[in-house]
């Protein structure tokens, strides 16, 4: 069975793209072994304590807690980019493995299919 890597680079709000990326990841997990990588502003999707009550947008960050139930336990981000944003792993809503750049490159080559969102 092929392995799928979902690469998420969009900030959580301002468009529905991040939410639709998560939808695709959840669907993928029903069919194949899936990993998720959050790069650039994509890491902001995982920030804990998001409040969208004043923006009429869905707080889909609450859904990340279900990833493990869907069998997605390989979730990664860039350590360099986490540091650049002044964030700690404890600021995120789920456990995420922070990788150095060389390991991110290895992550791409170790998966059969890469889907960008």
């Amino acid at each position: 069975m092929k392995t799928l890597l979902f690469v998420n680079t969009r900030p959580p709000h301002g468009s529905v793209k991040a939410q639709e990326g998560l939808d695709a990841l959840l669907m993928g997990s029903a069919f194949a072994e899936c990993s998720a990588l959050y790069l650039g502003d994509g890491i902001l999707q995982l920030l804990d304590g998001q409040d969208t009550t004043q923006t009429d947008q869905k707080n889909f960050s609450l859904t990340f807690g279900a990833l493990r139930d869907y069998g997605v336990d390989q979730v990664f981000c860039s350590k360099t980019q986490l540091d650049d944003k002044g964030l700690e792993p404890s600021d995120l809503v789920i456990n995420v493995a922070a990788l150095v750049d060389r390991d991110i490159a290895a992550l791409f080559s170790s998966h059969d299919v890469v889907l960008n969102f």
């Binding site: 069975m1 799928l4 669907m27 993928g28 069919f31 194949a32 299919v113 889907l115 960008n116």
Partner: peptide, 21 residues
């Protein structure tokens, strides 16, 4: 159709190419 068709395409095509970010 549903998102399952995207996943199916990723699993069964030799190459999946995405346009637009």
């Amino acid at each position: 159709s549903g998102l399952g068709q995207l996943i199916d395409a990723g699993l069964n095509a030799d190459r999946l190419v995405t346009f637009g970010c």
